[in-house]
Design a binder for these strands. Sequence first.
DNA 1: ACATCCATGTAACGGGTTACATGATTTT
DNA 2: AAAATCATGTAACCCGTTACATGGATGT
Lengths: 185, 185
Amino acid sequence: MNTLSYGLLGLLARKESSGYELMLRIQPFWQAKHSQIYPLLSAMEDKQLLSSRWVQQSDKPDKKVYMITEPGMQKLREWMHLPLAPSVTKDELSLRTFCLWLSDIGIALDMYEERRKLYFDKKLFFNDILKAIPEDQRHFSSKEFSDYILASKGLMMAETELKWCDWVLDLLKQHRLQKASGHRS
Amino acid sequence: MNTLSYGLLGLLARKESSGYELMLRIQPFWQAKHSQIYPLLSAMEDKQLLSSRWVQQSDKPDKKVYMITEPGMQKLREWMHLPLAPSVTKDELSLRTFCLWLSDIGIALDMYEERRKLYFDKKLFFNDILKAIPEDQRHFSSKEFSDYILASKGLMMAETELKWCDWVLDLLKQHRLQKASGHRS
DNA sequence: ACATCCATGTAACGGGTTACATGATTTT
DNA sequence: AAAATCATGTAACCCGTTACATGGATGT
């Protein structure tokens, strides 16, 4: 059982879902394609950690809805006592930043502007989730508590990333202005 | 050529290094083991993007130092014009947070305390890098500019993560207190 | 004595992406 | 008319980790 499988199990423990729905639910916290998720769900069903049924839909293709079983719940509870892996981030922008000195300042500005838009959208995304959680569901005993603290983290991180982008863009623009005035004098 | 290969090329463009040194230099921004880095360096040497020489050391094992070649520099400059991949983060803590409701509050407190320590050390790490960059090297034209803005990002992110952990820990401790007083009344 | 750092490499395996394959409905 | 959304699945390939293999120097 890998971490993604446990994550899917955890989502299913809160609400039965199809593979497609799970892909959408887990995406903001763990990027995984449908081609990775479907085989993991099949394998967990084979191990009796999940059960499934086909649900007919009008106007949409039929879907296979998975539910967690009692052995699945047991496995989940065990996971919470296993050692926690550290967070891993892989960002091409960091590696490219090492090469800023060998490229045109225009290329650099485009790169950070593009990333700025992503962080801005990310901020809106988590802000919308947060706004949808009413005050009375924001305490530990509520089912929505985890959504509340995770969306808060997403929002805080996006705001910091946005702030950093704006700061870098300012430094780059300042440098461009100084270079222009230098040419005139 | 994958992203990690370009990243190694970018580090070598700034300073010749051994595989071991590259592993240490890239680690804060892209976690990769030596077993992944050594074969990539070999492959890039075969493609004439790098050259190498053995350097003898007293008190330490000999090391194989790689230098970037002119075709390697060309490849690097091309990379800066290719589409930029979005950042990917995989954090087991987020997936576990979905399952908070099914575990003991003590387990939750331990988990966030443990992570808090990690973020605290991360903050110190980037703060030390930042302190080592003098004021006159913090402008765009300096070789150290990329180190300056990357260490700043690392510090800002670590501070936000730390703030989030403290906030979550406060919420959990508040809840525990309320439960205790509820039992008394 | 034992662990850690330095230093390089390979082999086996599991994780994850891209592409292939299908097809209805809704939006632009 | 074309693109996006919903929905499931498989196959080939590349990315990345764990384990194997070696060995001197330094620190606890």
